[in-house]
Design a protein around this nucleic acid. Sequence first.
DNA 1: GATGATGATTAGTC
DNA 2: GACTAATCATCATC
Length: 476
Amino acid sequence: MSFSICVAQCTDSLAATMDDQARIMQSIGGVSLAGHSVQGGMALPPPHGHDGTDGDGRKQDIGDILHQIMTITDQSLDEAQAKKHGLNCHRMKPALFSVLCEIKEKTGLSIRGAQEEDPPDPQLMRLDNMLLAEGVAGPEKGGGSAAAAAAAAASGGAADNSIEHSDYRAKLTQIRQIYHTELEKYEQACNEFTTHVMNLLREQSRTRPISPKEIERMVGIIHRKFSSIQMQLKQSTCEAVMILRSRFLDARRKRRNFSKQATEILNEYFYSHLSNPYPSEEAKEELAKKCSITVSQVSNWFGNKRIRYKKNIGKFQEEANLYAAKTAVNAAHAAAAAVQNSQANSPTTPNSGFQMKDEEFQLDSAESKNTLLSNMFTGSSGSFNLPNSGDMFLSMQSLNGDSYQGAQVGANVQSQVDTLRHVISQTAGYNDALGGNAMYSPHGLNANGGWQDATTSSSVISPTEGPGSVHSDTSN
DNA sequence: GATGATGATTAGTC
DNA sequence: GACTAATCATCATC
């Protein structure tokens, strides 16, 4: 709503209020006072010196008076001033004035007090609170950023959220500025209008009885009118903020596919932990960091993946194979490199009963890998599970596209294992390290359709039964 | 535009 | 609070 319309509305309302008063006065004025008609609260003098006792003459007088009133706007300012002066100086004026005051005192009681001391409007309070909460009203510092932050938190806080964030803040600031500008305008207009009406009433109080209390009441009416306009402004502002907020929050539904790299990282983790694809909080954080996404997005991704995998295992086999092969090759490369290192360094660290989880295999330091691999390939009698081997093999399918069948997968796993074994044996003289009989639970899913318990994860496989178990005594 | 893939949300369960 | 299952909404591909 434009400011001018609001002011116009206010003026209209005020005019209506004043009209009401005028009507009241007019109804009072219907009484003839000592031969003088009272119109609109204004005591009028007997025109042309007529005493007004005669009936026809009185009618004529009233006609003249009405004519005068109707044509008063046609008169020049000087003329009008002169007339006004005449009225003020009329000998009957004080008497009429006191009578008018008396009448007004009696009738005005019903008007007075009717609208005094309004309780605070709950709607207005609600709007005020909301504007404060949204950072539109109140102190500027941090205004809106808290709301934006809350919205951002709800949206998951992705990397590019900061852009939307600042966008939101900028728009909120814009709304805030408009709101304050309009509010200022309203206040200014209210003050101007109040002053104007007060002056007018003070001026009029010379010709009609207007007490200071009445002026006060009128000021109150004006203020109420303006505050109702203010409420409309606040309502509009709230609506604007709501729209902005909903748009901003809706943006979270606007999904963007994760990057290819991120999807790969997540898939790698998923398929290498297929027996128990429930990353710990730390793992989630790590994955989130690697993928440049949030932890909750990682959780979402795993939630979706688990469900979708479970629903359609066959469909994911190819993917599973790809990632399993990829992991195997990576592991083989790592092993080969490490073996070379170990040969160069020729450490012979004793090892017994060594088992390694896939997370543990991802050792950062070359030294750790060296130690690990030297354990694998030296004469110690320990055993180890190939990195990711347990989980990896669970999901393996024939690379030549056969459908998923437990036994078949076993064979396919074997072929993968053979490849891996070949790679390793070529580099370290390692032979037959990987047992041939792959015992697995398809996809890590148990009979109930749930994933195996973490403790039964194939990443921890006993040397005697695990498919990926490596008996160090077979090496060399 | 139809369709499948995929990220996000939600209600219900444990 | 984490998880599942269903669903929604959007993206990507044809």
